[in-house]
């Protein structure tokens, strides 16, 4: 069962196609990376999911139902460009946003108190938003996004402007929310965060879905059979018949295996030839490289 399913979604603005027949599916309980360069159509896709705009064609299903105007209650969205009413007090601001998400005043109060306690910021209730630092405002922003316990959480660059401590704090909360069953769409340019957090990704470029799958599968799909071997002793004279040396360092070597050969036989071959192997790692491409290569059309 998927929490979100896009089928051939297209959105055309007057002179360009922002979203061009995009389809993908997000399994329930997944942390999903929505990736793509600037202007690829990520925001357009997010706006369609959040019902801010409508797709020209194609269908979006949220938790098995066709997307409709009642669904915003089940979605929490933190845009990349975000802000709060500067003159409002933290408490009343959170109540306001929670009530717009369909919570009663009582529910809102309970949930807000719980979150403020969790972040140890109960004392902020009567502070005006403009009195808070940017990082503090981000916390409030995060609370306002998750306050109504959405089924689907969409976070666009959630860590921008946060210091490492608060980044970890929010990261832990995202994990905890995910553990409690909330599915999360995570949109960012920071690939190391994607690798760390996401289980699945979709890569959008020029409005099209160019790559989709689990992080592991994607990496495997793009692996180049590269291995780094740390060793002592001399390499056998006929070593280059078995593998192509890509890079030689002191005490280590990076090789590319022919597709036909597997890593175990290389390892056996080295050991049987008296080489002392300290380490043997497959070098998987990182998402950053895949991202850049895909976007620049190298594959």
């Amino acid at each position: 069962m998927s929490i979100l399913k896009l089928e051939d979604v297209t959105k055309v603005y007057e002179n360009h196609v922002a979203v061009d027949g995009v389809s993908f599916e997000i399994p329930k309980g997944c942390i999903f990376g929505l990736l793509g360069p600037n202007g690829a159509g990520k925001t357009s896709i997010i706006r369609i999911i959040t019902t801010i705009t409508r797709a020209d064609s194609g269908v979006v299903y949220l938790d098995g139902e066709k997307l409709s105007s009642k669904h915003p209650y089940q979605i929490g969205y933190m845009p990349e460009e975000r802000g709060l009413y500067k003159k409002m007090k933290v408490g009343e601001h959170l109540i306001y946003l929670a009530r717009l998400k369909g919570m009663s005043k009582k529910q809102a109060l309970d949930a807000i108190n719980e979150w403020l306690e969790k972040f140890e910021i109960k004392g902020w209730w009567d502070k005006k938003v403009e009195e808070l630092s940017k990082g503090m405002q981000q916390k409030i922003q995060f609370i306002s996004t998750v306050i109504h316990r959405p089924k689907l959480l969409i976070l666009d660059e959630p860590f921008s402007g946060l210091d490492p401590i608060n980044t970890n704090l929010i990261k832990d909360e995202i994990d905890a929310l995910n553990q409690s069953g909330i599915s999360i769409i995570f949109s960012t340019h920071r690939m190391e965060q994607v690798e760390e957090i996401c289980e699945r990704i979709v890569l959008i470029n020029k409005g099209k879905n160019i790559l989709e799958g689990s992080v592991k599968d994607v990496k495997n799909q793009f692996k180049e059979n590269l291995f780094r071997i740390g060793f002592e002793g001399n390499l056998p004279y006929d070593f280059t018949d078995n593998a192509t040396v890509v890079k030689r360092d002191k005490g280590s070597i990076t090789v590319k295996l022919d597709m036909a050969k597997d890593s175990n036989s290389l390892l056996e071959y080295l050991i049987s030839n008296g080489v002392i192997v300290h380490s043997f790692n497959e070098i998987l491409p990182n998402l950053n490289e895949i991202f850049i290569k895909q976007v620049q059309g190298e594959y």
Partner: peptide, 13 residues
Amino acid sequence: MNRIVEIMISSVR
């Protein structure tokens, strides 16, 4: 300008 609007219209029309 202070970008609250996108948050608002993800809840209201």
